[in-house]
Amino acid sequence: MKEEHIHIRWANATDAEELLKLNDAFNGVGTSIEEVIDSLALSNELIALAVIDDQAVGFACAQYFKSFCYRGLQGEITEMYIAEAARRRGLATLLIAFIEEELRERGVTNVKILTGQRNEMAIKTYVKSNYARTEEVLLQKKL
Rank of each mutant, 00 (worst) to 15 (best):
F68N: 00
L22W: 01
G75M: 08
A50E: 02
R118Y: 12
V137R: 07
L73F: 13
V127L: 14
R71E: 15
Y64H: 14
T134H: 06
L91G: 08
Q55E: 12
E105G: 12
V137P: 00
D54R: 15
G116Q: 10
F59R: 04
E17L: 10
R71Y: 13
E35L: 07
A11R: 00
L49Q: 06
I77S: 00
F98G: 04
A50F: 01
R71I: 15
I82T: 05
L139A: 08
H5D: 04
K124L: 02
L94A: 11
Y126I: 14
L114F: 10
F68D: 05
D24G: 03
V127F: 11
G72F: 05
V36M: 05
L138S: 03
M1A: 08
E102N: 09
L49Y: 11
K128A: 05
S43V: 14
T93S: 14
W10C: 07
A92V: 11
Q140A: 11
F68M: 05
E120P: 04
C69G: 07
E101G: 00
R71T: 15
I47R: 09
V51C: 03
E120T: 12
G58V: 04
A122R: 02
E79P: 03
A50W: 00
D38T: 11
F98W: 07
S32W: 12
Y126K: 13
I8M: 08
A92D: 10
L143G: 00
M1C: 07
I82H: 03
K141I: 03
F65A: 00
A11E: 00
E35G: 05
I8Q: 08
I37T: 06
T78R: 02
